[in-house]
Design a protein around this nucleic acid. Structure first.
Length: 863
RNA sequence: GCACGGUUAGCUUAGCGGUAGAGCGACUGGUUUACACCCAGUAGGUCGGGGGUUCGAUUCCCUCACCGUGCACCA
């Protein structure tokens, strides 16, 4: 047995020490050669720019729990970590630094800029990896991957080339979501539509053929009117039928534009007349296509207007231009009115600015394997937890659009396409540059970061690892990347490995603050997990968080809960301390019969193991944590250890040892069961208590249950009666304001013959007189317990009225219960139609109540 | 507009057809063979509103309200 345990658990040193040892022992490294069954998870790669958030803590803790649990169940575990190169985010970070030095990426040039990014990555990137280690994550760091590793780049390029050759990737000039801040195209998924207060402007366009007649149109974006190339109405709209085929005057730059009809126009919206701006609106673009309209792009990539908008708008920001356009319309007398109007505006997820629908030439992917992917999830071959996300997923798949995969960034996977200098129509697509490189120009764009992430479950593995560990078993992620990542990974899995990438997807909740708001940097409502680790220990943080993370529900974060985690660590620590003070470790459960209290705690241990196993099967981590918490704190500490204190005083060494062996079995079991949640603490105690010579990580958890044949039900029931009796008696003590530490004489009129010494100790009775023929004076406080009546003869004068009052209250309470039961039993329908078990149960309750009522009344009558 | 969640003690929440349960906070008492990061005890709930099914509904169904999320519309 190691050095005596201190009185309070201090996690900092312990946690650091064990993590170092685990790394030294390489216990997290997955061995492809082992003959254990495989278990694999790949981490959702955090951004290389990322720092640890509460979301990461939640997500990673769950993965660590799964990984450690699998190790304890004898699996060969691969938990593969890594990072994502995060195109926009990383480029942004580096550009900011450059700006501080008075530089821009443009005056550096592409090559030098990329070099800077790598330098930044080597110096500052991946802080999050160290932070994850502080949490205790058991990732196989020897297999850490980065989405810009040379092999990974290769895999991404091969994928591009392959899909191009299959005709699934194509280049096209289309309307895309354009982020004017970062000046890049985005995928539909990266656009967040946000209700925004704006105005609806009603504007008059003069009809060319009928001077003096106007068509009134409603628009939220007057700044695009300079790009109008038509005005459109619904063909069925009688109000405007006669104008179709005529022309309107576009106010400025003033020109004639046709009036046409198109069924995409909703006659009930606004005035039913739409100004058609094919270059700046998706719907308008489609109308333009149908009617062969000219496309006039009046905007620059940065969101300013260009010369086509007219000299006075040239170079002006789009929102300034809106005001200017309104003024001009007003001056021209064309602005009829404006009204407050709320509409949804698409914002760039990253750039935070309104997205501009923009016509541009981009690369698109027709998603492969859509059918199989849908089928895999719908059929449950891939199991989503909670299941309800299946619907969200199916809905997305059903409405899937081609994926815009090119980004106008420099940091990322460069598109492996070259255009010939002499003939730009000639293109070359390949993983290697063309042989006569000098005659070609490579596409300047890079691929969407998710185009590399979707290969993650297999592109991170070498041949051997893949053979052994693909497909993986579990994926743990937040539901907000279900489309970005999860869905696409399944497609890639089918396309490139011929099978699903994972069997289960566990979607975590989102961590919110106490007001229910998402945690965000800008709100400043996100606690720094590292501070929490500092204050409560990584184990405290992990356990505290898991205990409040309801299955698939958002989590309201409260630091108090983390404090609970720390307190629990301390509780277990002290339980071990207490055990250690009683003497050296025992070898195994004693072969002799158990005391009732031992039988009871072992029975509860069995129940707890059942509960935990069920919970694990359902991925109910909160339930696992809660079971262990209750078992340790209540069953073991509050009841067993207190009962054990009597047995440990027993003169007979065999009784003592028997009790200690039970405590050892329970503690050793708890440590193993709890290890996935609190890895450091349990490892420390495992060694301090000498429960094992080597790490607890691989100590089996399937041998915890105690043979039921050894647990006498009669004993278990007796212990339960003792505990119940203790509770009732303590209530009585408290009613009479007897300090809990004060020893008082009590008299038990026993309902059975047994050893009541533990009971006496639990209620702090000294002495406890057991007297079957006790005649208590009237007014002596009494507790009706399952062990019999317990009297507390108080010194001094007996307060008759106090006891009367107390009894009266208790009787009243009981009568209410009895009335309820009798009402139930008096209902013929109930007796006839309810299951017999239930009826019997209530009959028994009635009997028990009546018996107690009689006792109470008798006592009352004696006063 | 469509879909999916949620609404239980002051707070965070468990339970999801048969006696409403925990932790925190509040209150009372307390250094008893580990633990004040603790121990013993008390108070506090018409389980969001309304309807229905049932012998019985917090639990199942319908409906309304509010909160959250996703998708669509977004002139």
């Amino acid at each position: 047995m190691s050095a005596e345990i201190s009185t309070a658990y201090e996690p900092q040193l312990v946690e650091e020490k064990w993590y170092r040892i685990w790394l030294e022992q390489k216990s997290f490294e997955a061995k492809t050669q082992s003959n254990k069954p495989s278990y694999a998870i790949v981490v959702p790669p955090p951004n290389v720019t990322g720092v640890l958030t509460m979301g990461h803590v939640l997500n990673t803790t769950i993965q660590d729990i799964l990984a450690r649990r699998a190790r304890a169940l004898g699996k060969e575990v691969l938990w593969l970590p890594g990072m994502d190169h995060a195109g926009i985010a990383t480029q942004n970070v580096v550009e900011k630094r450059l700006r501080a030095e008075g530089l821009t990426k443009h005056n550096l040039g592409r090559e030098a800029f990329i070099k800077k990014v790598w330098e930044w990555k080597e110096r500052y990137g991946g802080i999050i990896i160290q932070q994850l280690q502080k949490l205790g994550c058991s990732c196989d760091w020897s297999r850490e991957r980065f989405t810009m590793d040379p092999e990974y780049i290769c895999a991404v390029q091969q994928t591009f080339v392959d899909l191009y050759q299959k005709g699934l990737i194509y280049r096209g000039k289309r309307m895309v979501n354009w982020d004017p801040f970062y000046q890049t195209a985005l995928s539909d998924e990266e656009v967040i539509s946000t209700p925004t207060m704006g105005k609806l402007y009603y504007v008059r366009y003069g009809v060319v053929e009928e001077p003096g007649t106007f068509l009134e149109i409603a628009t939220t974006r007057p700044e695009t009117l300079m790009g109008d190339t038509a005005v459109a109405v619904n063909s069925g709209d009688l109000r405007y039928q006669r104008f179709v085929g005529q022309h309107c005057w576009r106010p400025f730059p003033r020109t004639k534009i046709p009036i046409l009809c198109d069924d995409a126009i909703d006659p009930t919206f606004g005035t039913g007349v739409l100004k058609v701006t094919p270059a700046h609106d998706k719907l308008d673009f489609e109308i333009g296509l149908r009617h062969g309209l000219e496309v006039v792009d009046v905007m620059n990539p940065d969101g300013t207007l260009n010369a086509l908008a007219g000299e006075e708008f040239d170079g002006m920001d789009r929102f300034e231009a809106r005001q200017k356009a309104i003024e001009k319309l007003r001056d021209l007398g064309l602005l009829v009115r404006e009204e407050e109007y709320q509409n949804n505006v698409g914002y760039s997820e990253r750039g935070g600015v309104p997205v501009e629908p923009r016509l541009s030439e981009q690369w698109f992917l027709k998603y492969p394997r859509i059918k199989e992917t849908l089928q895999a999830v719908s059929s449950g071959q891939i199991c989503f937890r909670p299941e309800r996300w299946v619907k969200t997923f199916e809905h997305w798949i059903d409405n899937i659009q081609d994926w815009c995969i090119s980004r106008q960034l420099w940091w990322g996977h460069r598109i492996p396409v070259w255009y010939h200098h002499d003939d730009p129509g000639r293109i070359y697509v390949g993983t290697e540059p063309p042989l006569d490189k000098e005659n070609w120009r490579q596409d300047p764009d890079v691929l969407d970061t998710w185009f590399s992430a979707w290969l993650w479950p297999f592109a991170t593995m070498d041949e051997e690892t893949r053979r052994r560990f693909y497909p993986t078993q579990d994926l743990v992620t937040a539901p907000d990347i279900i489309f970005f990542w999860v869905a696409r990974m399944i497609m890639a899995g089918f396309e490139y490995q011929g099978r699903i990438p994972f069997e289960n997807v566990f979607f975590t909740g989102i961590i919110r603050d106490l007001q229910g708001r998402k945690m965000s940097k800008s709100l400043g409502n996100s606690p720094d997990p590292l501070d929490l680790i500092e204050k409560y220990g990584a184990d405290g943080l992990r356990f505290g968080l898991m205990r409040i993370a309801p299955h698939g529900q958002d989590i309201r974060f409260d630091e108090k809960q983390i404090e609970e985690g720390r307190n629990f660590a301390n509780k277990l620590w002290n339980a071990c301390r207490f055990r250690q003070l009683q003497g050296p470790r025992t070898d195994a459960l004693a072969p002799d019969p158990f005391s009732p209290y031992s039988a009871y705690i072992l029975h509860r241990l069995n129940e707890t193991v059942d509960r935990i196993e069920n919970a694990f099967r359902g991925y109910l981590f909160t339930e696992v944590a809660q079971s262990l918490y209750e078992f340790v704190w209540s069953d073991f500490c509050d009841w067993y250890l207190e009962a054990a204190k009597t047995e440990l005083q027993n003169q007979r060494e065999s009784v003592r040892l028997n009790c200690l062996s039970v405590a050892d079995h329970v503690l050793s079991s708890v440590l193993r069961l709890l290890h996935p949640f609190m890895p450091h603490l349990t490892e420390e105690l495992w060694h301090r208590m000498s429960f094992g010579d080597s790490t607890i990580q691989f100590a089996p958890v399937n041998n915890v249950r105690v043979d039921v044949a050894r647990l006498n039900p009669v004993d278990i029931a007796f212990a339960q009666r003792v505990y119940e009796a203790a509770t009732v008696t303590r209530n009585l003590r408290a009613e009479y304001r007897i300090a809990s530490n004060k020893r008082v004489r009590m008299i038990l009129e026993p309902a059975e013959s047994a050893d009541f010494s533990v009971f006496g100790r639990l209620v702090n009775a000294d002495p406890l007189d057991v007297d079957p023929k006790v005649v208590a004076k009237p007014g002596v406080p009494v507790a009706m317990t399952p062990l019999g009546q317990v009297f507390i003869p108080l010194e001094g004068t007996i307060d008759l009225s106090a006891e009367k009052e107390r009894l009266r209250k208790e009787i009243a309470k009981l009568e209410l219960e009895i009335a309820a039961v009798q009402k139930k039993l008096g209902n013929e329908s109930f007796v006839a139609r309810a299951p017999a078990v239930i009826v019997t149960k209530h009959r028994q309750r009635e009997k028990d109540f009546m018996k107690r009522l009689d006792q109470l009344r008798e006592r009352m009558a004696g006063l």
